[in-house]
């Protein structure tokens, strides 16, 4: 349940931001989930609720958005959304940045690839009560 560790980071980062802003409560925030990492939204929500208890984050409304995985070829410029196979799923769950190791450009066969979207998890907005 890697989602728990992700949730710990999200809670710490939000509480830190709340303290900096002098907030009494954090009432709402938006999380963007890059699809490469294959994070299970329900597990993440559960962990966030548990970890928020007794903090200024308790009861906050959580909005989740998803960003599709996109890879670009540095050789020919082609961009596509790759299918992640079950073999690499586990590795990418922990290290999504390794995705290029498992792919080749479908157009020019290059291995010089970059992730254009859908890696990682981040807080894209939040609402505070001061």
């Amino acid at each position: 349940m890697h989602e728990w560790a992700i949730a710990e980071g999200v809670v710490e980062a939000l509480l830190e931001r709340g303290r900096k802003e002098g907030a009494r409560r954090i009432t709402r925030f938006t999380l963007t989930l890059g699809e490469i990492q294959g994070v299970e939204e329900e597990l993440l929500r559960l962990a966030l609720r548990e970890l928020s208890r007794g903090t200024p984050l308790e009861g906050a409304e959580i909005k989740v958005e998803r960003e599709r995985g996109r890879v670009g070829c540095r050789g020919c410029g082609f961009e596509w959304s790759p299918e992640v196979g079950s073999e690499e799923e586990e590795a990418l769950h922990f290290l999504p940045d390794l995705l290029p190791l498992f792919l080749r450009c479908p157009r020019c066969d290059s291995v010089d690839l970059e992730i254009k979207g859908g890696r990682g998890i981040w807080v894209s907005s939040l609402e505070l009560e001061k």
Binding site: R17, G120, W122, S124, S125, L126, E127, L128, K130
Partner: peptide
């Protein structure tokens, strides 16, 4: 009173890495 804090993009990994 609600306030949109304009989070930009908060990467939650930094705080977690420092604590660990």
């Amino acid at each position: 009173m609600g306030e949109l804090a304009g989070a930009g993009k908060i990467d939650p990994r930094e705080a977690a890495a420092r604590r660990r």
